[in-house]
Amino acid sequence: MKRGLVVVLSALLLAACGGGGGGSEPASSGVTVDTRFGPVTVEEPPTRVVALGWSDAETALALGVRPVGASDWLAFGGKGVGPWAEGLYQQAPTLLGTTEIDYEAVAALQPDLILNTRSDNDPKKHETLSRIAPTIGAPKDVIPYGTSWRQQVALVAKALGKVSEGEAIVADLDAKFAANKKFEGKTAVVGAYFDGKFGAYVSGDPRADFMKAIGFTLREDVEDLASGTFYVDISAERLDLLAADLSVLFPIGGDASALKANPLVPEKALVLEDKNLVNAFSSGSSLGMAYALDHAVPRFTAALG
């Protein structure tokens, strides 16, 4: 561990031990959140939240809490969130790393709560973050980056002391999904094109789960390729695996020209080129899912004729 981080962590620990008032509040005054790394107790309502997990920042914002630091997983820049979260920040947070965490930068923000509910589930990262502040990891028995939007809302809401607000968000979005569940009996594949290669998302990924929630059935032979992952590679010789009643494809990190020019791509594939729509579809946040329902479902309906 870097010497600078040791110094910062030591200072934070000393401050916690030397605070006024004769000691911390009793545990019963806080909340305890169950995670894959064990129970995490948040003694008091947090005021300085750092959101590191995929869409943790948007989840906190939906609950009325503005993180002071956040990871920008979809490279939005600026405030690090999509247009569906426009106006929820008053001041831009400090943008932090994603897969590689700068622990010194996190510690420098002096957080009293760290959210990392949708991540790679690395126990060493969790241990290091927990030395800085109570850290809310993923729930038990989920694959890396496999925390569902419902689980994420529940974890974050409990940690923030906003359980009723979280329940309202889940109820509202469940109702919105139910109103758009109009594709029963249809199969779907969601695929991506990145760095000259194709792949498909499977159950446990928000894009795949989104399709199931509106009635689609995912191709079973594609699902069978997964092994504890949310994404599977599809070789150039097997692009037939991307065919379904509705094939939704999009590029990552570039335009769609190469994807659309490939003669092996299913002829009727719906290629998404609207970056905001792709990001909303990929965000996995309650806010992003609501945006995608409004903007993607009409495209799906039109593509199916």
Rank of each mutant, 00 (worst) to 15 (best):
L173C: 05
A60Q: 08
K79W: 10
L115E: 10
P139F: 02
E100M: 07
D102V: 02
E58C: 04
K162P: 02
S235F: 06
F300T: 14
L246K: 08
K125V: 15
V8H: 11
G288P: 11
S130W: 07
D221Y: 12
A213M: 11
E43G: 11
F250A: 04
L88A: 08
F76A: 08
D294T: 00
W149A: 04
G87P: 12
A105T: 01
S235T: 12
A105Y: 01
T94S: 07
G196D: 12
G254E: 15
S203H: 10
G64S: 10
Q110A: 12
G161Q: 02
L304R: 07
G137D: 14
R299H: 13
V265L: 08
G21N: 05
G199T: 02
R36Q: 15
P93I: 00
K124G: 11
T229M: 12
C17E: 13
V190I: 14
A269Y: 03
G288R: 12
L74E: 07
A75L: 12
G4I: 09
D172I: 00
V142N: 02
E25S: 07
G288V: 10
E237C: 10
G191A: 05
G64A: 05
S286D: 15
Q90V: 13
G215D: 05
D209E: 10
F210I: 00
P144E: 04
L304Y: 08
V81T: 06
E86P: 06
A62N: 09
L225C: 11
L88C: 10
P266R: 03
N262Y: 09
V49A: 06
I143F: 06
E273T: 15
